[in-house]
Amino acid sequence: MTTTRGNRAALVMLAFIVVGVPALIIGYQYGLRPALADHRVVDIEALAPENGGFSPDVVRVEVGETITLRFAADDVTHGIAIGPGLGIDLGHVDPGHVGEVTFTPQEPGTYTYYCNTWCSADHWRMRGVLEVVDPNSPGGVNVQLDPIIEALGAASVDIDSEPEVAEGIFPDRSRGERSLDTVEVPPSLRDPDWRLSHSPAEGLEVLQADNPDTPEDVLVDVVAYLWSETPPTDEISELFARNCAACHGERGRGDGPGAATTLEEPVAYPEVSWHRRGDIWYAKIMRGGMGTDMPNFGTLFTEEETRLLVDYLRYLSFTES
């Protein structure tokens, strides 16, 4: 029965199937494919944080080096973005699909790739670090201090102090806008930087000094308008919806679907906005709320985005109150 020639051919075929095919596949994927690419391709597995998060979670690239990042969502739908300031948002990547982006970073610094779609209870921990290093000083990555947070520190302002709840005050920016022409507004209240570092309650004191005969409720509304003067753009409301609404709620009232899972109850902005300084909110967003489950967004948002977000919180606070 021996069929030597047939057996030899079959053995060759078997060796090819069992050894050759796997070797070819692995060799192509991990050897030939990267070698043929004209720039570096990094495959990143994206899993919910409970299942491991991003892998790898640190990618290092040089300024001016073109790189392709390929994010493979393996468990649930993730939204992949890279920030701050890179403007990269791959949108939804469904399970089994791959979202990829090719770019050439120009500024050294630490960036974050992150999930911006509610993917699990620990969604907020789903982050990875993109280190863009200057080849002339490869040892270090630029870490710039934030002047607003530095100023708070210098003034010994306690960022983590409990917010004071406004009682008996119902500011309404729409009424305030209508009353604006009837009051004398001092220049400081027109200055966005001054407003950022002062609460509306402090602004009311200044406004009352200049308008002693105007009823307080009118001045409250005017202050509400001034503190939410910047009209929200679609980009900022989208930023809020993607990153904040899950816990703070669509209207910022602390009633998002994730509110039940956080260590502390998420802030309801309309309740605390009157006595809260904007730079404290800015710092909270950038740095995170220590021990509250409020994550930091300083690695995701630019300073400008964060300031606009603070304005948006005021807008939510003083609308439909």
């Binding site: 029965m1 069929t3 078997l14 199937i17 095919v21 493979a72 393996d74 089994g96 699909h97």
Partner: peptide, 30 residues
């Protein structure tokens, strides 16, 4: 004599591919 072994060999190829994909490929089943 070659009929059955060759048929098995041919089907062994996608079987090996299935095992490899299971061990090395995406964990998204679909």
């Amino acid at each position: 004599r070659a009929f059955q072994p060759v048929a098995m060999l041919i089907l062994l190829a996608p079987f090996v591919l299935a095992v490899m994909a299971g061990l090395l490929g995406t964990s998204a089943g679909n």
